[in-house]
Write a protein that binds this DNA or RNA. Structure first.
Length: 417
DNA sequence: AGCTGCGCACCTA
DNA sequence: TAGGTGCGCAGCT
């Protein structure tokens, strides 16, 4: 309701700014929305964040400053390359359809996501400092406590509050500090929503869509990393290895995955575009992984169908491998086992899974909503974010790290079989 | 003062 | 060459 209203306002505002050749940045958007509709900048900012998460709006770093794009329009731009990407994209289509169909309400704002990002996923981390982590956090705060008094807050304050991004992105700004040499570096942080976000039929705002120096951020998820632009690179670099080892070690994928990654590095050169969806989620995940949490997620219930068959890392690795062209048999086997079971998960299994994944509170919500394996496969982003009445933070993590991964893996496997 | 329109330069495909 | 983007400036309210 009010959300769609905001969505409309914000998109109109972005369009309006664009039409008058003004940069659709946070400040202008907030100002215009306020002037036209009387909405508080904070609120506008929060809503904008949501739209970014949905990819209805793309957040990009263009010529050194943050701009927002109406994803529905951006995506019209580049199709050619998308066609190329379709190879992989097509495979995901099933999942993607499921996860996006209602999300974007036809806006098809699937911008920043593209397999390119997947390709880059690993390496891109280097370039991603740009991001807006603080942003997210700020936005989250706004969301959590929207009533938060913002007396006398100016648009700029809001901008700062919501998009500390700017400060953060400064380092990679135009002045040439963009991480990484040349455009190739532009691609970075990709991964975040990497796979599965875009219906194959929507070549949308593939990275290419945002040309120039656009960097799309998915500002929703990934916080920490982005906050420290300076250290991000290092951090990311440091993490990379962690990711792999942590991810692969448990299973036989190890070698395959590693090779894939090497390949990725190369590929990334291609897609090097500018799109930089917040891939922090990935890093975030990484962190968890290294913490040893989700990864070795041994399924909780003893009687459940999942039992010891699944472990997040293996799924992820398998997926990565798959999405990147990996063909390790082991991967397939693993996945097969996993998704067959997924169809058989009971409500209790699902709850146990999330509980074991570190979301005990949210697991209750799944149980309450009677989400079993089949339902889980049908869940869309919006279902997870809003349908379970769970907090946005964990909801995002659950969706991006678990639901989406499970769905993707399941459908991919389905196609492969 | 703030909003709007737009010429123009820049950039990518 | 076409099309997207946005700076910078002038005019308007």
């Amino acid at each position: 309701m009010s959300e769609s209203k905001y969505r409309e306002w914000i998109l109109d505002t972005i369009d309006s700014l664009r039409s008058r050749k003004a940069r659709p940045d946070l400040e202008r958007i907030c100002r215009m929305v306020r002037r036209r509709h009387g909405s508080e900048p904070d609120r506008t900012c929060a809503e904008l964040e949501k739209l970014i998460q949905e990819q209805t709006v793309l957040k990009v770093n263009y010529k050194g400053s943050i701009s927002y794009r109406n994803a529905a329009k951006v995506q019209r731009r580049s199709r050619k390359k998308d066609d190329v990407t379709l190879t992989t994209a097509a495979r995901r289509s099933a999942v993607e359809e499921a996860s996006h169909s209602d999300l974007s309400n036809g806006d098809s704002a699937f911008g920043p996501v593209d397999q390119d990002e997947e390709d880059l996923e690993a390496d891109t981390s280097l370039a991603m400092d740009t991001d807006s982590n603080a942003d997210e956090e700020g936005a989250d705060e706004s969301r959590d406590g929207q009533d938060r008094p913002s007396p006398g807050r100016t648009y700029k304050d809001a901008a700062v509050h919501c998009a500390s991004v700017r400060a953060v992105s400064a380092p990679c700004s135009p002045s040439g500090t963009r991480p990484g040499p040349g455009p190739a570096s532009g691609l970075d942080c990709a991964s975040f929503q990497k796979a599965g976000e875009r219906p194959s039929s929507l070549p949308p705002s593939s990275p290419r869509a945002l040309t120039h120096n656009d960097w799309a951020y998915h500002s929703a998820v990934c916080p920490a990393e982005r906050q420290h632009p300076g250290m991000q690179r290092d951090k990311a670099a440091a993490m990379k290895p962690v990711i792999h080892s942590a991810t692969t070690s448990p299973c036989a994928l190890k070698n395959n995955v590693k090779k894939e990654d090497e390949g990725k590095a190369v590929d990334s050169g291609l897609s090097s575009d500018q799109l930089v969806p917040d891939y922090a989620a990935g890093l975030d995940e990484t962190r968890n992984v290294s913490d040893g949490r989700p990864q070795a997620l041994s399924l909780p219930s003893d009687n459940c169908t999942l039992k010891n068959k699944i472990d997040i890392p293996s799924i992820t690795a398998a997926e990565d491998s798959l999405l990147n062209g990996g063909k390790g048999d082991e991967v397939f086997v693993k996945k097969e086992t996993m998704s067959q079971n997924l169809m058989q998960w009971t409500v209790a299994d699902v709850a146990s899974y999330f509980s074991a994944a570190g979301f005990p509170d949210q697991a209750v919500a799944f149980r309450t909503q009677e989400i079993d394996g089949k339902s889980l496969l049908l869940m869309q982003r919006s279902d997870v974010l809003t349908g379970l009445s769970i907090r946005l933070g964990p909801a995002l993590k659950i969706y991006e790290r678990h639901v989406k991964v499970l769905q993707r893996t399941h459908f991919l496997e389905y196609e492969d079989l």
